[in-house]
Design a protein around this nucleic acid. Sequence first.
DNA 1: AGCATATTCAACCAAAAGGTTGACCATGGA
DNA 2: TCCATGGTCAACCTTTTGGTTGAATATGCT
Lengths: 125, 125
Amino acid sequence: MEADPANGHSMNTDLDIAFAALADPTRRAILSMLLEDDMAVTDVADPFEMSLAAISKHLTILTRAGLISQEKRGRVKWCKLEPDALRAASVWMQGFGQFEPVNLDAFERFLESEFRDGTPDDPRS
Amino acid sequence: MEADPANGHSMNTDLDIAFAALADPTRRAILSMLLEDDMAVTDVADPFEMSLAAISKHLTILTRAGLISQEKRGRVKWCKLEPDALRAASVWMQGFGQFEPVNLDAFERFLESEFRDGTPDDPRS
DNA sequence: AGCATATTCAACCAAAAGGTTGACCATGGA
DNA sequence: TCCATGGTCAACCTTTTGGTTGAATATGCT
């Protein structure tokens, strides 16, 4: 059952957990929601059609993956995105293909072009 | 079971498949091996302690995720890394790094138009 | 033709994932 | 104090996942 070949490729359990957490569409949707703002568990669960308990489990998985943190204030548990946890996964993916630096480059140009057209407060134009 | 909340967060099945494929350490190790060179199925299986059939299944999963391609030449099936498939996942993750209100769909179209003409975005020949 | 090699297929299995429901604790407010 | 609210726990169920084995298929070699 071991995934560690003889030549020393690592079997990073953190990555297992992170990618597995990201593999579920419900959990990715939750992360997207938290991108806009911190939310209480009940409010996170609201747009979904599954039970609160199910969402609670998803949040536990996201927490264990380090992708969110949960802090209880009063009787409300607030969920907060922890985007830094994506860094390990991102770094791993950077090992593949030169597309990542290119992407970052392209991303900047994309942002720039986004701002240039249709943005009223752009000095140039 | 639906992951599509009312406010329109997407439920991208491609991302499901890609992240799920990446969640397994054996499959990530395979990808790392293929980073160095194209390999036959038997050679991919060699450093692992599991059966050839198991590795064959892993390769099928990676293929379905688009992360590798397989081409049969003679009786040997060659496995080739397809790092472009990581792009969608990478773009999704980048949405969390920088907290820009960025239109990822537009970014995808932008990338497509960038790479459409004659760009050698394949690291190995 | 006959055999070895490369790979997949089919049936099976155990464990993990993702969901449900109902009971249970904790907290805030009347 | 009593009750509604917020959230988790425990038990259970079904489907998926990741592995096994042995047989089957396909190709190459001599």
